[in-house]
Write a protein that binds this DNA or RNA. Structure first.
Lengths: 239, 239
DNA sequence: GGATCAAATTTTGTATGCAATATGCATTAC
DNA sequence: GTAATGCATATTGCATACAAAATTTGATCC
């Protein structure tokens, strides 16, 4: 493959840096993914030794990663009882989505005025890839591209604080985004909204972009609200 | 009711709720204060054993606290080189203040529509106390009340995510807020702006409140920008 | 059968120990 | 005098050890 030759070229120009990642950083990433993707159920207690043996590390770096996750709001720390995967109430999800929406709307203005054509082109490419994933019914790929598009859009505003806060919140809400796309008509609508987004961005029309994004995330919450309502009925039945 | 009196009695009889705080939580709070108030200089490396002996604890809970601070953005972790107090460039401060401003403007609408009179009254009381501190020239007290007012204003929106993100960002920028009030005319202007804020809030006029807050935080950045410019000249002289 | 309570077990929180990496310093070569 | 090299020290990252707290178990009583 080409990869080899290009790697060789890179070697000549820029000698390969040795990957030096810390264990707690690695664990942090893996745990975050596990929580966000639902491998660890909300409300579940995290048993340290269990995860440790699973990951093949000691408790020290794991605990360090758990503190970071607590700061991110993905787990709660209870004294003498360890870490618990955070549960979100309907209101908490609604509130978080409202903040995400506000941040994305805020990003619109700078994005439309100061983004380069190249950067917008990249997002368009991601969007097209996402539509392709939708056509194929490849949910996982679709979700990742969807998330990436929102991240990139915010990045266009060139505000590191904004990007970072948005990224953290988006990650903590990923679970619910997934849920909000259940049902083919919901999914179709979400794709259509996204198409409107990319078009408004290409037109560099901040007001239109704001409106589309606002609608998109407003609708996202409604879809999730339905899910919460359904879940609560299930809970009632249990009672 | 009995509950009240017995609670009061309990307070007398059981003065101290047995300290059930974790060490790392305690350390986290103390370190955060030290960084935010400038006891630890930006760019300074944090020597673990030094802080440990100072606090009388072992390295484990300290390191856990450092991970949390890293997630909050107050320190940076460099592999094999430990934690460094985060330095903010002028752009980073500007960006962060812009996000804070956006969040506070977002809070205005809900605050004006759904806050109770009592809650607004409490903020008015804080404001009056802050003005008193200003008259007395009590900077420390003034700053704390100032910060508290912004926190409470955001809390009025009753959005826990919003409150939490705002609190974290505000804390990380506290240092610069302090700096922005240097010079008596700057200080006086800031107080006047705050007076406009509380009046708009009492009038429950979201648009006016938004405008005043926007102006207040816009001005805050300008004051800080001056400081950064001055600092850079100092740096140039060193060169 | 169910409730109660104490011992046994598990799990967490903190301290300490050890190996790997970084830093500072002296020595050498030029 | 300066740059480069090797060695001693300091500091970090992770693993382990141990004490305190929580949870489970099971024996006892009603």
């Amino acid at each position: 493959m080409n990869a080899d030759s290009s790697r060789a070229e890179n070697n000549a120009v820029q000698p390969v840096k040795i990957d030096r990642r810390s264990l707690h950083g690695e664990i942090l990433t893996r745990l975050r993914t596990m929580i966000v993707e639902g491998d660890l159920a909300p409300g579940a207690r995290i048993n340290e030794v269990e995860i440790c043996t699973q990951f093949g590390v000691s408790r020290t770096p794991l605990r360090e990663a758990l503190r970071s996750l607590a700061s991110e709001g993905l787990v709660e720390l209870v004294l003498s009882r360890g870490a618990v995967v955070r549960e979100f109430s309907a209101k908490e999800v609604s509130d978080a989505i409202a903040v995400i929406r506000n941040l994305e709307e805020f990003a619109c203005v700078s994005a439309c005025t100061q983004a380069t054509d190249a950067a917008i082109g990249e997002i368009r490419a991601l969007h097209d890839a996402m539509e392709a994933a939708y056509e194929k019914g490849d949910r996982r790929h679709y979700y990742n591209l969807n998330q990436e598009i929102h991240t990139r859009l915010v990045d266009l505003a060139d505000n590191s604080t904004l990007s970072q806060v948005h990224e953290t919140l988006q990650a903590s809400m990923k679970r619910f985004r997934y849920a909000g796309h259940e049902g083919s008509e919901n999914w179709a609508r979400a794709v259509a909204e996204h198409r409107g987004m990319i078009e408004a961005l290409e037109a560099r029309d901040p007001d239109r972009l704001k409106a589309v994004i606002g609608q998109h995330l407003g609708a996202a919450w409604e879809r999730v609200a339905d899910m919460f309502a359904a879940t609560q009925e299930g809970a009632k039945e249990k009672h």
